[in-house]
Amino acid sequence: MSLTFTLDPALTPDLRDGVLDLWTDVSNAGGSVGFVPPVTREDIRPELVKHMVAMAEGRTRLLVGRDGSGRVAATAFLTLNTHRLMTHWLWLYTVMVHPRHQGRGYGRDLMAAAADAARGLDGIEAIRLTCRGGLGLERFYESCGYKEVGRVPGAIRVAPGDDRDDVFMLLPLT
């Protein structure tokens, strides 16, 4: 079974709740998506609202992967760069695959779908993302064609005494 990806799906209450559940479950499984466990849906809701506002304003696009039962199983947010000298690339944020689906290649499928979606946008030549060091995420993104282009040591404080590098990755699309 594979995931079915949709760019810019209709923002329904079911989709909103599915993304919120996914984000909560990924965070509580230790995923590097902006939170440290334990978290609740209510902890994550304000951040999701920010993403939804950016979507409504046309600054962010949502890529959703649904499993065979139609449940939200993966997401990535593609955020257009508004700086006039940098509109030729976009940011990829909040890349998530539900823990129950990990290890099946769905992360690679999600990254390929994100690259395909970005290629379909006018003038986009590259994707940038950041990831939390110390988890091996750089190796995953490198295996998807990204290369490390920068690193800020200790920029992410997961807990007192537990600082991680902020790793910048780039995927040229041309």
Rank of each mutant, 00 (worst) to 15 (best):
D109Y: 00
E138L: 04
M52P: 01
I127W: 10
R132I: 03
L78C: 01
L48N: 14
F77G: 01
Y146W: 07
V149K: 03
L20R: 11
A73I: 04
P153I: 07
H88I: 04
M86D: 07
E42S: 15
L80H: 13
F140Q: 05
D116R: 14
R45N: 13
I127S: 06
A56W: 14
N81H: 10
L15F: 06
R104F: 11
P38D: 07
G145Y: 10
G103V: 03
D109N: 05
P99C: 06
G145E: 10
A115L: 00
F77R: 08
T60W: 01
V97Y: 06
T75A: 06
W23N: 03
G150T: 08
G120Q: 13
M111W: 00
T24G: 11
P9T: 05
T87W: 12
R151K: 02
L62K: 13
V72P: 00
H88G: 03
E148A: 15
L62P: 10
V95D: 01
A115I: 02
A29E: 08
R104M: 14
R139G: 09
L48S: 12
D17E: 14
V19T: 06
N81E: 13
W91R: 14
M96E: 04
R61A: 14
E125H: 15
L90G: 09
L22Y: 01
V39A: 13
E57P: 12
R100S: 07
V19Q: 03
S32L: 04
W91Y: 09
Y146S: 01
G123H: 11
A118G: 06
R84L: 02
A73S: 06
L92F: 01
H88P: 15
V39F: 12
M52D: 14
D109L: 03
R41P: 13
T12C: 06
A76G: 14
L11R: 11
W89R: 13
T130E: 15
M55D: 06
Y93D: 01
L135P: 00
Y106M: 00
R59L: 13
R61G: 09
I44M: 15
P37W: 08
L92A: 15
V19Y: 00
A117V: 06
K50V: 07
L63A: 07
L137R: 09
Q102N: 10
R16I: 08
S143M: 10
L137V: 04
P38H: 05
G154W: 00
G120L: 00
N81R: 05
G30C: 12
G145V: 11
V72M: 11
A118R: 08
V152A: 09
R16M: 07
V53T: 11
G103D: 04
E142A: 14
V26M: 04
R84Q: 06
K50F: 06
E138F: 00
R16E: 12
T94P: 00
A112H: 03
P37T: 02
